[in-house]
Amino acid sequence: MELSLLSALNAERQARRAAILVTDIASGAQRLVRQHEIDADPLALPLDRQLRMGKSGMVEVEGASLFLTVQAPHPRIVLTGAVHISQAMAPMAKELDLDLVIIDPRTAFATPERFPGVTLLPEWPDEALPRVGLDGYTAFVALTHDPKIDDPGLTAALRSDCFYVGALGSRKTHGKRLERLSAAGFDEAALARIHAPIGLDIGAVSPAEIALAILAEIVSTLRGPRRKPA
């Protein structure tokens, strides 16, 4: 690989941006396609397909054998609320190979005993999120029902490229949430990004079922048709 390609690939990796290295098997020629360049690329469809799967692979295009080396950031979930739903979600997320970060300033809830092996930040979201960072491979989930905790997180998520933004609560609760966020300056297009009611509609009742519904919706969004930057 040429040094310039390697440097460019490393730059995308450090910035948590996806990129695909296209190698012509016959000639050995290589080129790099960054995620924001895919739509205009002649190989847009196969590039998009491999990126959504998050896997490298061989494709045949007009008689040419090409190997697509996919470099995608590790997907993660950042959520506010060290609650029963997030307790149920933690082991499921691990099985799905999704990193999980839980933010909750309520130290009585945010304890290592309740969340073993999980990145736990007993801080206010506006303190923790600038350090955590939110990007196109991050799902943000608000679970506390407390506007003092959830709203700052949602504000940060809506101002980012998070591929998924979800918030727990009834339609009435969400209506009041939308009023607050609208007053904070978000338009209808931005507010429409929030998945609420959160999770796939599977009739979930228990914390574990709600966690399952949320994770299913996150995976569906991650692996579904590629998200256009906001």
Rank of each mutant, 00 (worst) to 15 (best):
L3W: 14
S7D: 08
S7V: 14
R17E: 15
R17C: 13
A18W: 02
A19D: 09
A26N: 04
G28I: 08
R31H: 15
R34A: 10
I38E: 00
A40T: 12
L43M: 07
A44Q: 14
R49K: 07
Q50G: 05
L51E: 03
A64S: 14
Q71N: 14
A72T: 11
P73D: 01
P73M: 09
T80V: 13
V83T: 13
H84P: 01
S86L: 06
A90Q: 05
P91G: 07
L100D: 00
T107S: 14
F115R: 10
P116E: 06
T119P: 00
W124S: 00
A128Y: 02
L129V: 14
G133Y: 04
T138K: 05
F140D: 01
L143N: 09
D146N: 15
L154S: 06
A157F: 01
L158S: 05
R159A: 15
C162P: 00
V165W: 08
L168K: 04
G169H: 05
R171F: 09
L181V: 06
S182G: 15
F186V: 02
A190C: 09
R193D: 03
A196I: 06
P197K: 01
S206L: 12
E209W: 05
E209Y: 07
L212V: 13
A216I: 00
R223T: 10
R223P: 04
G224Q: 09
R226P: 00
P229W: 10
A230G: 12
